[in-house]
Design a protein around this nucleic acid. Structure first.
Lengths: 193, 193
DNA sequence: TAATAATTCGGACGTACGTACGACTTATAA
DNA sequence: TTATAAGTCGTACGTACGTCCGAATTATTA
């Protein structure tokens, strides 16, 4: 068994393929054979590098979490004022919805999967905690001119802002084709001014 | 084949069992045999009444949608002012999270499933459209003292409020045991005052 | 009652799945 | 070069799944 799978090209091919397959078909509709084919690798290699399906999926979630964290943190650095930072964050998700909806589907799909798996739940919970914390420090702890209400509830409001983004995006995804919904996210800033 | 399955006790037993199984284990982890056992019915009865798995799951979604719509509409009638109505809505979901988390898991799980099934997507999309409409007419069209911003964006804000409820609830479910998150929903009204 | 339809039942079919295993090949190192 | 480990490959096992079908039973109707 491979000791380190992080930089092994074969294991990375598999992980990439898993990422692609799940975001294309949903975790419930993807088999290890699908992933092996997508990776151009023999089925048993998946067990060799990731032991079993759960192990592979855990790695997919870890990579997803890492990617989201890095990108969101970068976006939040882009703006100066609180208002700008919120706008940057919305733009990030807006463009993801438009250009890489699979990435959002993946997040949503794996969150749902995490409801039924303890190990996945912990990973996803950590991701949401981290993102909420990013929002809190970069947006709510940034502004000293906020209403007292906002300062007082900065932790809860960060989670709610994240929740609003996710919950609204779900509706956008389910309403695919309804053009009037495409930029629902852009109204969120109104609430946090 | 049964013409009408709405009031047939056998088909209702099956539907109830499907409802229970999916909300207990998640749609991806439930087999028709699980449901048949839960219903105390022989496997082939499921195909007899619902043709196939997709047909059965569609009916589960229809029932879920109906239940949510009726309950939410009732809750929204409870309050008088806009503020009260929002409070009632939050209380509804808050108590669901506390007392019937399976019901919320079911909504979330089936929403995720709907990302990959056209027929389910339409059903879920209709549900979200209807709920958002309920919120808009009962809350945003209710208050004439709102900021112009709120009146102008009432449709989008309704979706965002619903999104915030759902997205925040997801975080609560994933953080199960983190007591500080249990009543995250209660901060949402701050944003809509 | 007799005949027809609706329902219930048990079981079987074919398939797709995750996993395990042994053989083979390549890389490593003494 | 030879011995040991790491990696690759093909295959097979056992199982769980959705679906289907014919027989048995019950209900309906003439």
């Amino acid at each position: 068994m491979a000791e380190e799978i992080n930089d092994n090209p074969q294991s990375q091919k598999i992980l990439n393929a898993a990422f692609a397959c799940i975001s294309k078909k949903g975790y419930a509709n993807v088999s290890l054979r699908d992933i092996a084919d997508e990776a151009g690798v023999v089925l048993s290699q998946l067990n060799y590098y990731y032991k079993n399906k759960e192990g592979l999926f855990n790695e997919v979630v870890k990579r997803l979490a890492q990617q989201y964290l890095i990108e969101i943190e970068a976006k939040l650095k882009n703006g100066e004022s609180k208002k700008e930072k919120i706008a940057c964050l919305m733009k990030y998700f807006q463009e993801m919805l438009k250009n890489k909806p699979e990435l959002f589907k993946l997040l949503f799909d794996l969150s749902s999967m995490a409801l039924w798996s303890a190990s996945l739940r912990e990973l996803l919970n950590n991701l949401f905690n981290d993102v909420a914390k990013l929002i809190e420090t970069n947006i709510f702890h940034q502004s000293i001119t906020d209403k007292e209400n906002f300062q007082e509830h900065s932790a809860a409001l960060s989670r709610i802002m994240l929740g609003a983004i996710i919950g609204t995006s779900i509706q956008v995804m389910l309403a695919w084709g309804q053009v009037d919904m495409m930029d629902s996210l852009s109204t969120i800033p109104v609430l946090f001014e």
